[in-house]
Design a binder for these strands. Structure first.
Length: 666
RNA sequence: GUCCCCGUAGCUCAGCUGGAUAGAGCGUUUGACUCCGGAUCAAAAGGCCGUGCGUUCGAAUCGCGCCGGGGAUGCCA
């Protein structure tokens, strides 16, 4: 809010002085508060353009700026920075605006109702959602909420790959389990089948309802029935997991339906009409290399069935047909080659490629006892979203995921996360919120409630801490816009931490409720109440609750640290150290890091789709990041895995007809 | 081979799209309620921002090359 005001002022000054401008100057809060509340580099940025020395230019601009009553001090520093100190009156005006904005604080018309489609998670319907999906869900959902908040019309969409190989394998896995339950000897469970417990649960479920009947059906009907049942079952599992995280989707799009509607044939004919297909080795290929992909892609396999790419193209065409201005795919890093393929098709079919954007969510590495764990849905080896929910709950999970930039590889140690649950920034933020409510209660007890009639008293808020709080509050709307624009959702939790921190500091230094200073107390109560409301708005966007009281402090017995503390601390640190030592090469763990590149890259990619710059693809989740192929081989760290591998060979023969697909995949 | 992501405090991460003396949390050390909730606050210690060039008034940030870690490169999805 304040920033906008300054920028507007600068714009008009540039006009008044008839300066050449590229609008590349910025207004920022200097790290060093001594430099003022805000500073701008305008003089340095425009100096060359206007063939004037920065300082000379700065003086001219400063002369104008000084006329603005909102600025109490304007000065030039260093090579030509202009530093601005904000007049207190402006803070009070702003606080008043925020007060009147109420629960809508932060909302804006920035998006102008532009239609955005966000596709995320889109996990295969072959198993429960896992940690990676949880990250995607947290990110996508919050991004959507932010976009809506700043005036976009945004929809969340989940694409279900309920057709194709993986579904058949699931069906066959379920059938095998069903037979097993009914006492048949199925031999070794095939390696390529899904080993997760949920398959057994699923089979049990079927068994308890209509197991007998199903097994009596002719094969085709039986498999069809099992497939439908399984898909529905897993779909429900996934919906439930998402619901626990407060993530809901507006649309669920089924690949199977797209196929039913003949979209596959349609896409094939479109591409043929565009003269970008050819036949080779009995297959139909797409000349995607002509549109920036690094190799051509098969559309129709030699056996006459389409590859996944065709329905995927079809799916994206439906997005276009639904009239969105921007479509965002949130993808996992494992679908690397996907983006150029889809982009190639979009380009070939003459759709506007700029509208289709991709965000890559980097992987989540799972650690157990300091060792990296390979997740595999097929082997049932994964930490599910439900596990996560049980271990640390929704609030901590969502906050945790959101806090990292999308480019950041994320190391996740469930045990550690559980332990650190108590020392978590989430609680820091929630505590600030709860504390304020506690203060308000106290005020009420003392007969002091913030009333509309004492808004005038806001002028009494003059301490540095109070003004800092107001300044921080005032940057909230522009932050949301920046996030919507850059998709850097991790900036929101950081903002909340900062705001909560400013409050805690303030709390430590001043007493809000002071019966002797009634008017000042009311003003402070107003301020603090607005802070709480803003915290709540921000937390809710993140899908994190904002409780009015925190349930429980730490352990019951540590009111006083001093005496018991020392021994305790030692113990703790010893355990920690011990643990660390056990961990092999902790230093080598890659550190996730941050780049804000996502947006840039998206832009780049979009701008030059023909570049080889492959990026990644959709289907955020695809738990099957771990390819059976690779993992089946040597990497298997555990002997268990090796055994499994061996078993496979044996099994193959044991499995008779039901497991066609499974056998085939070997 | 080609492509993507990452390298910032002991650990996990920020760093507001190129600004002034690089920041938090955890961990370590030391203090602070007879008073609005100590899940807090105040303070100390801890850095060649992987590395070398380049771009410019100015680089953790942009470009190129190395080094190191992870991932992707199916007629799987």
């Amino acid at each position: 809010m304040i920033k906008d005001l300054i920028i507007n002022d600068l714009h008009s000054i540039v006009g008044a002085l008839k300066l050449e401008s590229n609008n590349k100057y910025t207004v920022e809060e200097p790290k060093d508060k001594e430099h003022g509340d805000f500073s701008t580099n305008i003089a340095m940025v425009l100096a060359k353009l206007n063939k004037t020395a920065p300082k000379v230019l700065a003086e001219k601009i400063v002369a104008k700026l000084k006329k603005n009553k909102h600025f109490s001090k304007v000065s030039i520093a260093g090579p030509g920075f202009i530093n601005i100190k904000i007049a207190q009156a402006l803070y009070h005006d702003i606080l008043l605006d925020i007060f009147y904005a109420g629960d809508e604080f932060g909302s804006s018309e920035y998006g102008k109702g532009k239609m955005i489609l966000l596709e995320f998670v889109s996990a295969n319907p072959t198993g429960p959602l896992n940690i990676v999906n949880a990250r995607a869900a947290s990110f996508g959902d919050s991004l959507c909420r932010i976009m809506r908040k700043v005036g976009f019309y945004a929809e969340r969409e989940f694409y279900i790959n309920d057709a194709g190989n993986q579904v058949d394998i699931l069906t066959e896995s379920v059938e095998l389990r069903l037979r097993q339950i009914r006492g048949e000897n199925i031999g070794e469970f095939p390696f390529e089948a899904y080993h997760g417990e949920y398959v057994m649960d699923l089979a049990k479920e079927i068994n308890s309802t209509e197991g007998t009947r199903i097994l009596m059906m002719p094969e085709k009907d039986r498999m069809e029935k099992l497939k439908d049942f399984s898909l529905q079952y897993i779909h429900n599992l996934q919906i439930n997991s998402l619901a626990k995280f407060d993530v809901e989707f507006d649309n669920w799009v089924s690949e199977k339906n797209l196929r039913k509607q003949g979209m596959v044939e349609e896409v094939l004919s479109y591409l043929a009409e565009a003269h970008c297909t050819y036949e080779k080795d009995d297959a139909i290929w797409f000349k995607s290399t002509e549109y920036g992909d690094d190799k051509d892609r098969v559309l129709l396999k030699a056996d006459g069935t389409p590859t996944y790419i065709v329905p995927d193209i079809a799916y994206h065409l439906t997005k276009y047909q639904r009239g969105f201005d921007v479509m965002i795919d949130v993808l996992g890093p494992d679908h690397h080659g996907y983006i150029p393929r889809i982009q190639a098709a979009i380009e070939a079919l003459k759709y506007d490629e700029d509208k289709l954007q991709f965000i890559i969510l980097q992987q989540v590495n799972l650690f157990e006892d300091g060792e990296k764990v390979k997740m595999s849905k097929r082997l049932g080896k994964l930490v599910t979203m439900d596990d996560l929910f049980r271990a640390i709950g929704k609030d901590v999970s969502r906050f945790f995921f959101l806090q990292r930039s999308t480019n950041s590889h994320l190391n996740f140690d469930l045990e550690l996360a559980t332990k650190e649950g108590n020392e978590n920034p989430v609680y820091y933020c929630q505590y600030a919120h709860a504390r304020i409510h506690s203060i308000l209660k106290n005020g009420k007890k003392a007969g002091l409630k913030p009333r509309k009639s004492d808004l005038k008293s806001l002028e009494l808020l003059t301490t540095k801490e109070e003004l800092d709080l107001i300044k921080k509050l005032s940057s909230f709307p522009e932050l949301l816009i920046a996030i919507a624009e850059t998709r850097e959702t991790h900036r929101l939790p950081n903002y909340v931490i900062e705001l909560a921190g400013l409050f805690h500091k303030y709390y430590g230094k001043f007493k809000v409720v002071d019966v002797k200073k009634e008017e000042l107390t009311r003003a402070r109560l107003h301020l603090v109440k607005i802070v709480a409301r803003t915290l709540k708005i921000a937390l809710n966007i993140m899908g994190v609750s904002a409780p009015e009281e925190m349930k429980q402090k730490k352990a019951p017995g540590d009111k006083k640290k001093s005496a018991p503390k020392k021994p305790k601390v030692k113990e703790v640190s010893e355990t920690v150290k011990a643990k660390k030592e056990v961990k092999p090469a902790p230093k080598k763990e890659k550190k996730p890091s941050v780049k804000k590149a996502s947006e840039k890259k998206v832009v780049k990619k979009v701008a030059s789709p023909k570049k080889k710059t492959a990026v990644e693809k959709k289907k955020v989740s695809k738990t099957e990041a771990v390819k059976p192929k690779t993992s089946a081989k040597p990497k298997a760290t555990t002997t268990a895995k090796k055994t499994t591998t061996k078993k496979v060979a044996t099994k193959k023969s044991a499995v008779k007809k039901p497991a066609k697909k499974i056998a085939k995949r070997q």
